[in-house]
Amino acid sequence: MVQQLTYLKETASQTAGPYVHIGLIPGMAGFDIFEKNFTNILTGPNTKGERITLEGRVLDGTGTPLRDVLLEIWQANAAGRYNHPADRSPGAIDGDFHGWGRAGSDFETGLITFETIKPGATVDKTGRKCAPHVNVWIVARGINIGLNTRIYFSDEDAANAADPVLNLIEQPVRRSTLIARRSERAGKVVYDFTINLQGPDETVFFDV
């Protein structure tokens, strides 16, 4: 008999449920408990880079916005560097940019917003340049295991065309589901995104 590999197995995922806000955004559940709360604002007064708003909705298989969904984003800073010891790329760490935030959708409209900066281009481990992108993780009632996707930017056509991950998507028509549209409203740069969980314009989700 061969030797056994003594690996453990990952703990199985379970849905975050409809009351996920209690644990992760208690203010949205309707009460104040922690001194410091995690928010959808990633920028501080000294954060470097172009200030942007990400604004969007997550839609179910009927096109109805989810009003109890929670998103987390993780992104590089303006220099393309993640604030994490495993990232040894040359761009400087920004002392006023953590790179992570979370947001719940509005209970009436389903709208989700993040205040952040546009990330710089990153480099993957084989040295290929990756277009600027924001990593997104989605949990909600009815979602049994968190869904991973990315937000790319509509004003980065050349970088998007060369992006190694977008180019892994076999059908070019599906690549557009990951690209947020840039507009300017009241002097603010806003990127609109729509995440379709299911259906003809279904967003590309990754097994990362």
Partner: peptide
């Protein structure tokens, strides 16, 4: 998982696209 009814309309029908972990996935908030 239709026994859990909310999952019916909130589940992708397309396959997940496998990504080999790059710096975007192997890093995370501290």
């Amino acid at each position: 998982a239709p026994g859990y009814k909310s999952s019916v309309l909130r589940s992708p029908r397309q396959s997940l696209l496998s990504l080999e972990g790059s710096i975007s996935e192997i890093t995370g908030p501290v």
